[in-house]
Amino acid sequence: MQYELKGTFLQTVDITLNAGESIYTESGGMAWMKGDIEMRTGAKGGLMASLGRKLAGESLFLTTYTCRSGQSLVVFAPEAPGKVLDFHLADGQTLICQKDAFMCAEESVKLEIAFRKRLGAGLFGGEGFILQKISGPGVVFLEIPGEVREYTLAAGEVIQVDPGHIALFEPTVDYDITMVKGVANVLFSGEGLFLAKLKGPGKVWLQSLPLSNLAAKLARYIPTSK
């Protein structure tokens, strides 16, 4: 399999498959394709795995594209302006991602749901409550709205983030939710009641544009019936 990320802020992933090679995505994730390609849609991993993916923001069914002969091209496009990240995961290597981050991957990559273990993160984390767990081996592509910033946290190092700005992190990073201190900060800062606390060691990827923020902004300009 060969691939190329094309574009800047509305990227595509152009994947060239050789005979016998496959790539899978959520239903509706493919933009265009050419060549001798077999398309199979089903509940990959069984019913429980499918229900877990649904809770994590993905489709109940996944579609696999397999090149039957020669070379074939399959192109995937993100649902919102932003960046596409590619990761070559080793066997057993794992990433914890926001829901809706998964774009497509080789068949050897496993996509699961990941609940936060701590009560605070679960009750107050908002978008961070239900996450995606992606495990290797294989290549996976993630779609992240907005620009992406990567930080490497040392052991014990902490970064505080609005939960909606967390794109993904390594499983070695400790994730919890803390309450904003100070009445004035809570009432007038506009940042909400809670912040996510990410504690190293490990890598963290943050996004500049949570989809919830974009949706709220656009909603102001959508006419409503009276």
Results as ranks from 00 to 15, higher is better:
Glu4Asn: 13
Glu4Leu: 14
Thr8Met: 12
Phe9Ala: 15
Leu10Tyr: 10
Leu10Val: 13
Gln11Asn: 08
Ala19Ser: 13
Ala19Cys: 06
Ala19Thr: 11
Thr25Val: 11
Gly28Gln: 06
Met33Ala: 09
Asp36Tyr: 07
Thr41Lys: 14
Leu47Met: 11
Ala56Cys: 07
Leu62Gly: 02
Val75Phe: 10
Phe76Gly: 10
Ala77Ser: 15
Pro81Thr: 10
Gly82Asn: 09
Leu85Arg: 09
Gln93Lys: 07
Gln93His: 05
Cys104Ile: 01
Ala105Phe: 00
Glu107Trp: 01
Glu107Lys: 06
Val109Asn: 01
Lys110His: 10
Leu111Phe: 13
Ile113Tyr: 04
Arg116Lys: 12
Arg118Ser: 14
Arg118Glu: 11
Gly125Ser: 09
Lys133Arg: 14
Lys133Thr: 01
Gly138Arg: 01
Gly138Phe: 00
Val139Trp: 00
Val140Gln: 01
Phe141Ala: 11
Phe141Asp: 08
Val148Ile: 10
Val148Lys: 07
Ala154Cys: 11
Gly164Cys: 05
His165Lys: 12
Leu168Gly: 02
Phe169Asn: 03
Val180Ala: 07
Asn185Arg: 11
Phe188Ser: 08
Pro201Ala: 09
Val204Met: 02
Leu214Val: 08
Ala215Cys: 06
Ala215Met: 11
Ala216Cys: 03
Leu218His: 02
Arg220Asn: 13
Ile222Arg: 12
Thr224Cys: 10
Thr224His: 14
Ser225Asp: 14
